[in-house]
Structure formats: structure tokens, C-alpha cells
């Protein structure tokens, strides 16, 4: 489910990184962000919290919302700050 902090009407681009080794998850997510259109949101699925991705998202002024699950896996929602 899209977190409350993301407005309704966004289309979701899912980037499933659960079977990828570093740095492929970062590459895929950052590539997806470069192509991100207005009213699109990236949903990243990963085995663990991608701590090294966050500074890169901050550099690109992206908004994020992280959900961590009991098994350590995560869902990271990423969208443009000014939307």
C-alpha cells in the first residue's frame, strides 16, 4: 500500500532488487529516479535497508518513506520533493 505521505493518483514503478547483488540495486533505483515523471513514485523492494542509497537520494532531493519488515526486508518509496 502507498504510504499516507504519498498523494493519491501517483503511478507506481516497482523496482524489485531482492535477487540483485551490490551495487545493482542502487543502479536500478537511481536509473529509475533519473527517468521519473511527475506523479510517478518508485517502490523499491530489497532484502535489507539500502543505507548507502539514502545519501544519493538526498543529493537528488528525493522524498522517501521506508517500511522495514520483521525479516529485515524493506519497501522504500521514493518520489520527487516538490510534488
Amino acid at each position: 500500500m502507498i504510504p499516507d505521505s504519498v498523494s493519491c493518483g501517483y503511478s507506481v514503478i516497482t523496482v524489485d532488487c531482492r535477487d540483485l547483488e551490490p551495487p545493482e540495486p542502487l543502479v536500478l533505483v537511481l536509473e529509475a529516479i533519473e527517468k521519473l515523471e511527475p506523479y510517478e513514485v518508485v517502490k523499491m523492494l530489497h532484502r535489507h535497508s539500502p543505507k548507502m542509497l539514502f545519501p544519493k537520494l538526498e543529493e537528488r532531493k528525493m522524498q522517501t518513506h521506508l517500511k522495514e519488515f520483521e525479516d529485515g526486508s524493506i519497501e522504500l518509496w521514493i518520489w520527487k520533493e516538490d510534488k
Binding site: P3, S49, K51, M52, F54, P55, E58, T64, H65, L66, K67, E68, F69, E70
Partner: peptide, 12 residues
């Protein structure tokens, strides 16, 4: 399921 804050850039 839980939400948590994000880690800032602390890498040396």
C-alpha cells in the same frame, strides 16, 4: 511492519 527514519550520509 514498522516504519523507521532514514540513515543520513555518515560514510567516511
Amino acid at each position: 511492519m514498522r516504519s523507521s527514519g532514514l540513515s543520513l550520509d555518515q560514510a567516511p
